[in-house]
């Protein structure tokens, strides 16, 4: 009986999580400008209009650029730092890690305005580059967390075994270290990309005349007649994300099952 109570709770909680999210796709197909019951009939015109919205597509392009740059850079920085702290016993490791993870403890708005001030002080214009820098602050701690976990599960003996079997540092990295931490790298890329792609506040302060997608959406929320389109956009983002995660899972499982034979 108690087990069922917990199960019921879990299902109710799941409903709480899903209901608001399902509003997006439901009303994105609703043939009415007003987001209210009763539903007025099925339409795909919001999606069609979305495809014709060049400003939105431009913002999407900006977000993809920023997301990819942030994901690559923060994962690279995270790799180096995670390697440093798991491989070497360094004095001041704790202080360094504390400093790096500081952005987790600072509200985003403070990060945004402080970078805004700095750009002003050194006379640099607001740009997507500035957004990337801001997103790095938020993403590098995530990347490090993911990668440190991966490196910590990594048996140092394996690298020594590789050296012992005649491979130098570089080849050891490619033949042993890299394949073994690859899942961590992919997870870090995915996590940091999504984080950057979804980040609003820092981009809001720093993007200037080149809005990212969240900044663009923010601007649209003021116009009731554009809301169904925004919902359609949200539904697409949701669908693509789910497809990506499913793909990642599929690849991961396939990788496990595939027998690795041959030299």
């Amino acid at each position: 009986m108690r087990k069922h109570a917990l199960l019921l709770y879990a299902l109710a909680y799941l409903a709480f999580l899903y209901v608001p999210v399902l509003v997006l796709p439901i009303f994105s197909f609703n043939d009415s400008q007003f987001i209210a019951f009763p539903l007025a009939g099925f339409t795909t015109r919001w999606y069609a209009r979305l495809g014709a919205d060049t400003a939105m597509l431009h913002a999407l392009g900006n977000s993809l650029k920023v997301g990819m740059a942030t994901a690559l850079l923060s994962t690279l920085l995270g790799l180096l730092a995670a390697r440093a702290v798991t491989r070497y016993r360094l004095r001041g490791t704790h202080a360094a890690l504390g400093f790096i993870s500081l952005p987790l403890f600072i509200p985003d708005i403070v990060l945004g305005i402080s970078l805004l001030l700095m750009l002003g002080a050194i006379g640099l214009p607001l740009s997507l580059g500035a957004v990337v820098l801001g997103h790095l602050l938020v993403c590098v701690p995530f990347a490090i967390t993911v990668l440190v976990a991966r490196f910590e599960g990594f048996d140092r003996d394996l690298e020594e075994a590789s050296a012992d079997l005649g491979e130098d540092g570089w080849m050891t990295f490619w033949r042993v270290t890299f394949p073994l931490i690859l899942p961590g790298i992919l997870a870090s890329l995915l996590l940091t990309f999504i984080t950057s792609f979804d980040e609003f506040l820092v981009a809001y302060f720093l993007s200037g005349t080149e809005p990212t997608l969240p900044v663009y959406i923010w601007g649209q929320l003021r116009f009731p007649e554009r809301l169904p389109m925004v919902l359609a956009l949200g539904a697409i983002i949701l669908a693509v994300s789910v497809a990506l995660v499913a793909l990642a899972e599929y690849v991961r499982n396939a990788g496990v099952k595939k027998p690795m034979v041959g030299a």
Partner: peptide, 18 residues
């Protein structure tokens, strides 16, 4: 020299052959 490690350090991503 070559070494047999206490943990054996078998590469987990490779087959026996590899």
């Amino acid at each position: 020299t070559n070494m047999v490690f206490q943990s054996y350090a078998i590469f987990p991503h490779l087959s026996v052959f590899d």
